[in-house]
Design a protein around this nucleic acid. Structure first.
Length: 823
DNA sequence: TTAGGGTTAG
């Protein structure tokens, strides 16, 4: 028999490797691999005598040459030796080859406890818990052997649910292993894992002896259940008992410090880490990076990362996520490149971060690369998290078609998938699509809506002014005890505010926690859109008095509120305070608000000078605000200049062409109107049609300007003609400067009557009981003539009419409007 | 010869 046939399952190359090992040990006198493979079994028998088997085996294991070691065992005929085969099982397991471990294990005729333990441990260490439990059950029921101290800890770890855990616990008690520190620690941890921290604590308290591992098990139990205070307390108790924290203690506690925002404890632990040289532990450094990232201390995170000698995938993911989650996608991307240079293969979580980075950079090209990479890896099938991340990525860059396609293709969807899709639509202004997805979600009973669902759907309902539906969500929120959640509360404030229920918004505002700026911003913005700049300022003063730190959004809301109410000097006060007192550098949005403020107040020169003095390149919002001001105040020359600058920075936005053509039309310069129109046409832009909507009996009716297709069209026009003649008797005179076509006066009056807001209001009047308030929503700004008409309508119909347009609210009552005709 | 307790997540 040839030597090679003795080892049927081992490849020749292992033999040759083995042979070189033999050579290096100088214990085998065969000259070459070929010679060795030619030897017969008799020869081998003789050769074997000359081999120092133990030395060779040790050498193979030391060199991590697992296949050589295996070959050696087989070639030397010792494969029935439990000790050696178990060692091989462990070695294969360490090398990540569980199937070869099982193969070795499986062919052992008389397995002992050590062998079974080794196999179960191999499964556990690769996260194959079900197989580990199966292995244990088979061992317990068929081998006739008694488990030992080493058997239980891995098996306890493998328990997938409380029932399994309790069964194993019973067995431990029956066999009397409960006071082994390793077994007890694993039980403590098992109970914590299933949320029974109290039971875990009882076991821990009853332990007659505790080592550091026992303390760690209890601490991590608390940490993983979010019991931060208890975790930190028991860590302190451990210190008082003279047990020092090790890398594992630190790695458990650091995430808790981050979670509860305890920067001081976090830093003290970091000092401890440095003092005891734990910073070279991979887990510790990784946990430190994550903690500093959560505190927003990117400098510290990067310093820890920079000092690491060995980095693993978690280290790279952590530093990438640190920048990604602190809105620094450029640096995050840089670290991703460095990771590739270091030849570390990205994993699932790398891609989750990368998807967010690509979204933040609005990088359409790379969004497809991310999508493709995930597809090639086949991760969509297995992991919901990456599917959701890709949906989110596409939604954030405004590619809703791709987002929906990926969403539709997800084999399993959880509540986050639905929330992501709803948010995606809502944040891209596609409220009805968001609502459609939300309603579709309701058809899947297994999906339970959560906080994220309310936060995603409420803005969609506010956007379309769907008060009834919004209130229904409010009911659900109360049912789910989420009314004190600051984010849900803020969305409700926003919803009530945007649906014209300012009083409800205010009362809700005083019910939610107000420690951070979020609800304040929402309430200030509500006052702003309702044209009450004074109240917005008053609330801002209250916010300062309560020592709540405003952020950049607070100032955008505040400046815009001032702008809509003509509070020029107050706005200037806020603008200066922003940087001087709070160190917030004004962004383009803030500059845009200021230009808008000066412009609306008729201070066109001030607005223009303000733009000229801006320390950053003015964008479309600044020039657009100036152009709008020129329209309101009829300044053609400056309007022309503003539009030229505007088209340099944004030539795609059709709204600006409309604004410019309005300026010409208002003063009857029809050739100017034609020029602008043809310019827009040449650039392939089409006017965004004006429309208004009204919700009656949960049904949304949308009217486009000049709409002739509504089923009640005739009635609506009849009512409008009737109402128009009535309001003419009390002083209404049509203002033709809002007609942007060069036609006869009769025709102009007809055009005005066909404005979408008027159609919606008339439809509301004929469809509701007398004196019922009417709420309508318009996608563009309300027209000046319609504004006048609505004031008169509020007198003769004795109704409140609430019109929400693209920038604010108009609350008409008894012939006046809440905006005081300033908008 | 084998065991427990540890870091990243939409």
């Amino acid at each position: 028999m040839k030597g090679s046939r003795l080892v049927p399952n081992c490849k020749r190359r292992h033999l040759s490797k083995l042979f070189s090992l033999f050579q290096s040990h100088r214990t085998l006198h065969t000259a070459s691999v070929t010679d060795y493979l030619q030897v017969t079994s008799d020869d081998l028998e003789n050769e074997r005598k000359g081999i120092d088997f133990n030395a060779l085996f040790k050498s193979c294991t030391k060199l991590q040459q697992v296949k050589c070691a295996h070959t050696l065992v087989v070639v030397s005929g010792r494969f029935k030796d439990n000790f050696l085969s178990s060692k091989i099982v462990n070695l294969y397991s360490q090398h990540g080859d569980v199937s070869l471990a099982w193969w070795t294990f499986h062919h052992l005729p008389n397995k002992d406890v050590y062998t079974w333990n080794s196999m179960a441990f191999a499964y556990v260490s690769h996260g194959r818990f079900r197989e580990a439990l199966g292995c244990f059950n088979q061992f317990f029921s068929t081998s006739g052997l008694r488990p030992d101290f080493y058997t239980f800890p891995p098996v306890v770890k493998a328990c997938g649910d409380l029932l399994d855990g309790k069964k194993i616990h019973c067995l431990v008690l029956k066999l009397g292993f409960e006071w082994d520190v390793f077994v007890a620690a694993s039980l403590v941890h098992m109970y914590s894992r299933f949320g029974l921290v109290g039971d875990a604590r009882k076991l821990f308290d009853d332990m007659p002896a505790r080592d550091r591992g026992s303390w760690n098990a209890m601490i991590s139990g608390y940490c993983q259940n979010g019991n931060a205070a208890e975790a930190l307390d028991i860590a302190d108790e451990m210190r008082l008992e003279g047990v020092k924290m090790d890398a594992i203690t630190v790695a458990s506690v650091l995430p808790v410090c981050a979670q509860v925002g305890d920067i001081l404890s976090g830093k003290l632990i970091h000092l401890y880490v440095i003092k005891y040289g734990l910073e070279f532990e991979l887990f510790v450094s990784n946990a430190l990076i994550n903690m500093y990232a959560k505190f927003g201390s990117l400098g510290h995170a990067q310093k820890v990362f920079g000092q690491m000698v060995v980095r693993d995938i978690v280290s790279w993911n952590s530093i990438i996520a640190a920048y990604e989650q602190n809105n620094n996608p450029v640096s995050a991307h840089l670290f991703f490149h460095k990771m590739q240079e270091a030849r570390v293969q990205p994993d699932l979580l790398t891609l989750v971060s990368l998807a967010s980075i690509v979204a933040q950079l609005n990088d359409h090209q790379n969004s497809r690369s991310v999508h493709g990479f995930v597809m090639r890896k086949g991760w969509f099938m297995e992991y919901i998290i990456i599917g959701n991340a890709v949906v989110d990525m596409y939604a954030k860059i405004g590619n809703l078609d791709s987002a929906r396609a990926v969403f539709g293709g997800l084999l399993i969807k959880d509540v986050v998938s639905w929330n992501t899709m709803i948010t995606g639509y809502a944040q891209n202004g596609l409220a009805s699509e968001a609502i459609e997805v939300y309603l579709l979600m309701g058809e899947h009973e297994e999906i339970i809506p959560n906080q994220g669902t309310w936060v995603s759907i409420l803005p969609a309902y506010s956007h379309v002014g769907a008060l009834q539906q919004g209130m229904r969500i409010h009911g659900q929120v109360i049912k789910n005890c989420l009314y004190s959640d600051v984010f849900v509360g803020t969305c409700l404030i926003d919803m009530y505010g945007k649906c014209g229920k300012l009083d409800d918004a205010i009362s809700l505002f005083y019910q939610v926690p107000r420690k951070n700026s979020v609800p304040w911003n929402a309430m200030i913005s509500c006052y702003g859109v309702h044209g009450d700049g004074e109240k917005a300022l008053e609330l801002f003063r209250e916010m300062r008095a309560e020592r709540v730190k405003p952020d950049h959004i607070t100032f955008v809301s505040l400046l815009s509120a001032c702008s809509h109410s003509g509070l020029v000097s107050d706005a200037q006060w806020c603008f200066n305070m922003m940087e001087e007192e709070y160190g917030i550098k004004p962004s383009l949005k803030h500059y845009g608000c200021m230009v808008d403020l000066f412009g609306r107040a008729g201070e066109l020169e001030m607005a223009f000078n303000f733009i000229k003095k801006m320390p950053i390149q003015p964008d479309a919002s600044a020039w657009g605000a100036l152009l709008n001001a020129c329209r309101i105040h009829g300044n053609i020359e400056l309007g022309k200049h503003a539009s030229e600058r505007l088209f340099e920075v944004d030539s795609e936005n059709v709204g600006y062409y409309v604004l410019l053509s309005n300026i010409y039309a208002n003063v009857g310069k029809w050739e100017g109107v034609d020029d602008v129109r043809s310019l827009a046409r040449d650039r392939g832009l089409r006017k965004n049609p004006g429309w208004s909507s009204i919700i009656l009996n949960n049904k949304v009716d949308v009217f486009y300007t000049g709409n002739q297709t509504h089923p009640k069209c005739e009635e609506i026009y009849r009512e409008l003609r009737d109402l128009t003649s009535k309001i003419k008797t009390i002083g209404y005179v049509p203002d033709f400067c809002f007609v942007l076509q060069d036609v006869e006066e009769d025709e102009k009056e007809h055009i005005l009557m066909g404005h979408s807001e008027r159609l919606a209001i008339a439809y509301g009047i004929i469809s509701t009981f007398p004196k019922t308030p009417i709420r309508i929503f318009k996608n563009l700004r309300v027209c000046g003539d319609c504004h006048t008409v609505t004031k008169f309508l509020s007198i003769i119909t004795e109704r409140e009419i609430i019109v929400r347009d693209s920038s604010r609210f108009h609350h008409f009552k008894g012939g006046t409007c809440s905006c005081g005709d300033y908008w």
